[in-house]
């Protein structure tokens, strides 16, 4: 059998109970909020002090290590200088090596009658060689050899200019190449 609920509280009193109930609920949520806030704040303080002390500990270790590194400043400076100078020297030697390689390559195809009068290194890794000979045939052979595509493949460019003959019968030309 269904129960029949009969509210005997007068209408005015009923409204006041609802208000009190709402007030209680708000009070409850406010308490929860305050407790949650305080717990979080406490947790924050604990974490803050722990992290802060860890950081101080780290900073102390860093300053100790810095002092240790400072005591080795002289060998470190020496090492930096050595490294710098060896790097510079390495670059210079590499360029010299390349220049000698190219010169040897040119020299290898030059007949004995051919003379390199002037050898000049250019600013951007090029070579300018004044070649001369009284033997036209030897000079012709040399020009033929250095004009060969197989020979010139290692150069960025290779060109011959100022071919001339002097009063004394010496033939000469300028061979310019970049590598």
């Amino acid at each position: 059998m269904a129960k029949v609920g009969i509210n005997l509280i007068p209408g005015e009193e009923k409204a006041s109970f609802e208000v009190i109930d709402l007030a209680r609920r708000i009070k409850f949520y406010a308490s929860i909020l305050v407790i949650a806030f305080l717990v979080t704040l406490m947790a924050c303080f604990v974490v803050f002090f722990r992290v802060n002390s860890h950081l101080n500990n780290l900073l102390q270790k860093i300053s100790l290590t810095e002092a240790k590194i400072k005591s080795y400043q002289s060998p470190e400076t020496d090492l930096v200088i050595v490294k710098d100078r060896l790097t510079q020297a390495g670059k210079i030697l590499k360029k010299q090596e390349r220049k000698i390689e190219v010169l040897n390559k040119i020299k290898a195809v030059a007949p004995p009658q051919v003379i390199f009068e002037t050898i000049e290194s250019g600013e951007k890794g090029g070579l300018l060689i004044t070649v001369s000979s009284s033997n036209l045939l030897a000079l012709h052979q040399f020009i033929k050899d250095i004009s060969d595509p197989e020979f010139a493949k290692d150069f960025r460019f290779a060109q011959i200019s100022s071919v001339s003959r002097s009063e004394t019968g010496i033939y000469s030309f300028i061979f310019e190449c970049a590598f």
């Binding site: 590194i69 080795y72 002289s74 060998p75 470190e76 020496d78 090492l79 200088i81 050595v82 100078r85």
Partner: peptide
């Protein structure tokens, strides 16, 4: 820093000084 300090500890200061003097004569 710890790694650097350990590396520095392993350096031979006397040999390095000689090398530095030599390198400064090279360039």
């Amino acid at each position: 820093l710890t790694a650097k300090a350990a590396d520095l500890e392993g350096l031979d200061a006397v040999a390095l000084k000689e090398r530095r003097d030599f390198s400064l004569r090279v360039v």
